[in-house]
């Protein structure tokens, strides 16, 4: 058992180091690059006096190391600073938008998971057949699609032409009230409140952006499922299982999937991190009121503090996910768990 705890402890320390590194990188990005954040904040028309004033306000006139100390000190207290655009605390502004992003990312993730993993496994099982070829072309195509363009095609077909999806403006039609907040996810909250109308409306708004994102991220899931399943199916222990007469379905889903799961899991972590950040574009097309759209508004108004906090948030989510995956990995794999 000590091995297990050693492993977890080591991973945890590495995660802490990575988070620290992420903070340094985000900090340096703003302070070392040629553009002066104070000048950015003041805008192109500002005079030198205003820029000076902002510099003092933001502490940019102090030595770099002092600035860094102040910055990390703030972060430790959970303070992300104020938005330059709205003068509101960035933490609160991000906080109220996270559920929207989470709902979108989670739905896309679940769709991609239940679509990509079986498809990859089938391709591996019938490897080199025409099924495999089609799945591979499909996965390559998915990896080549520009997210923003796919979103536009989706809106054009399913909203403009077919009217299957709601207008791409937010999570609910204007006039429909938000369900009482429990999880922040409208689909679940509306069901909990027993409000079928709201549920339908939320679903109509959600399915198209979720499917768009899922289509893009299913490509790497298919690829990794296919290749790791193919490796496993060629492994000696699968031949042993065949030699004692294990039927193919059991072979595939018990022996195969469990062993192929570890690389797939790693990819799932990457994909979820991508979804949290990559929805920047989809949220933009669908006017989805999540953190991605907030980041976009911040970007287009040079609200650098908000952008920086968004990037930091994504990276920390990403690093934490990797830690959770390591935990699951250690639980599955007896080589780490035991001894």
């Amino acid at each position: 058992m000590s091995n297990f705890f050693n492993f977890i402890l080591r991973r945890f320390l590495l995660t802490i180091i990575a988070v620290f590194g992420v903070i340094i990188l985000v900090f340096l990005l703003t302070r070392l690059l040629p553009n002066n954040p104070a000048a950015l904040r003041a805008g192109p028309l500002a005079d030198a006096e205003l820029i000076k004033q902002y510099e003092r306000e933001m502490g940019l006139d102090k030595p770099l190391i002092v600035q860094f100390g102040t910055y990390t000190g703030q972060l430790m207290r959970g303070d992300l600073g104020d938005s330059w655009r709205t003068s509101q605390p960035v933490r609160e502004e991000l906080g109220i938008r996270i559920p929207a992003t989470l709902e979108l990312a989670l739905s896309a993730f679940i769709i991609a998971l239940f679509f990509g993993v079986p498809l990859g496994i089938i391709a591996a099982f019938y490897s080199d057949s025409w099924i495999d070829q089609i799945v591979r072309v499909f996965a390559t195509l998915g990896a080549s699609l520009a997210l923003f363009w796919l979103a536009l095609v989706g809106v054009y077909i399913f909203y403009y032409l077919l009217h299957w999806a709601a207008a791409p403006v937010g999570r609910l039609t204007i006039g429909i009230n938000e369900p009482p907040e429990i999880t922040g996810l409208f689909l679940i909250d509306s069901l909990l409140a027993g409000d079928i109308e709201t549920f339908k409306d939320a679903f109509n708004h959600l399915w198209l952006p979720a499917c768009t994102l899922a289509f893009i991220v299913s490509a790497p899931i298919i690829k990794i499922s296919r290749s790791s399943m193919k490796d496993v199916l060629n492994a000696d222990y699968i031949r042993t299982a065949k030699a004692i007469g294990v039927p193919p379905t059991k072979l595939l889903f018990k022996d195969g999937l469990l062993n192929a799961f570890i690389p797939i899991l790693t990819m799932l972590g990457i994909v979820f991190g991508y979804l949290m950040g990559g929805n920047l574009i989809v949220e933009q097309v669908f006017a989805w009121p999540g953190i991605g759209q907030y980041a976009w508004k911040a970007l287009s108004t040079n609200d650098f503090n908000a952008v920086q906090s968004f990037v930091l948030l994504i990276a920390v989510v990403y690093v934490s996910l990797n830690f959770i995956i390591d935990l699951i990995y250690a639980l599955i794999n007896p080589q780490i768990r035991l001894e």
């Binding site: 590194g21 992420v22 990005l29 690059l33 040629p34 950040g277 990559g278 650098f304 952008v307």
Partner: peptide
């Protein structure tokens, strides 16, 4: 540390700073 950022987000942050 750089791998902790999705490539697109990193590129976005750098572009917006540059």
């Amino acid at each position: 540390v750089m791998f902790a950022f999705p490539a697109f987000i990193l590129a976005m942050a750098i572009t917006s700073a540059l």
